[in-house]
Amino acid sequence: MITLLAIAASLALTPAAMPTPPGELPVDPYEVSNSNAGAEPLSDPAVFEAFGGIEGIDRIVDDMVERITVDPRLADIFRASDFVRLRRTLKEQFCYLLGGPCDYTGMPMRSSHADHGITTAEFNALVENLQLAMDAEGVPFRMQNRLLALLAPMQRDIVTR
């Protein structure tokens, strides 16, 4: 009973708090908004199609996350991560940015990467893994670049070291 009250109280105190989805670790509360995705979505439906829609994006993100966990340049950054949450929010973000029928519920780029001490070289290593995952899904190179053009400026928020 006391526990329930405490949870209710904490929920009441946190603005725009989202319940922690199953399998994920709780995070500090933040304002949920599509503007957290870090760029305006594309309006050209050809790009979303070239990515294979939601299913294609899901496969790309799963493949990319698999790759980064074994990439020696990146494994240490993500070893401490909540991979369930990472996959979900990345899928939402890519789907939203590519103009798909999704909302992004993750944190803004700056706060989700704060304290990770990410370098430009590590950012680029992540881009390479994304490129390999997009190749594996058969996304044409020029369509890949439409997404990368939206992600590239996030380097300024993500790289802190």
Binding site: A121, E122, N124, E128
Partner: peptide, 13 residues
């Protein structure tokens, strides 16, 4: 202002 003097190689796309 690095806290330590060190440098890396590689990293460009």
């Amino acid at each position: 202002a690095p806290s330590r003097f060190d440098f890396e190689t590689g990293g460009k796309l």
